[in-house]
């Protein structure tokens, strides 16, 4: 799965803001942002990755266990799907 074209992530004053740069991507009444961990996963998803790879990356980078990483990746991906930010 991968971040859909037309979305970019920018860090502004410690806030990770998702910006829609195409007419289809633009959501006029919402500001979407991520925490630091979410931004970490977003950057992996920009290149494309599946759930196991995302969970493994979380474990390498952060102090967390496999079960927590897998569960949180699931929840996070559902959040992104809910806003139609990812393909796959």
């Amino acid at each position: 799965m991968k971040i859909k074209p037309g979305y970019i992530l920018r860090e502004v004053m410690d806030i990770f803001v998702i910006i829609g740069v195409g007419s289809e991507a633009y959501s006029p009444n919402e500001i979407l942002s991520l925490n630091e961990t979410g931004a970490f996963l977003w950057r992996i998803l920009e290149k494309g990755a599946e759930k196991p790879e995302l969970a493994a990356a979380l474990q390498r980078e952060y102090d967390t266990d496999p079960q927590t990483a897998e569960r949180d990746v699931d929840v996070f991906l559902e959040m992104l799907r809910g806003k139609a930010l990812i393909d796959g």
């Binding site: 500001i31 979407l32 942002s33 961990t37 980078e61 102090d63 967390t64 949180d72 996070f76």
Partner: peptide, 19 residues
């Protein structure tokens, strides 16, 4: 190894006429 915080997506909604 960084301190872990669950990844989150924040959605702030505002009225169109605030812009």
């Amino acid at each position: 190894m960084k301190k872990y915080e669950a990844p989150e997506l924040f959605v702030d909604t505002f009225a169109a006429d605030t812009m």
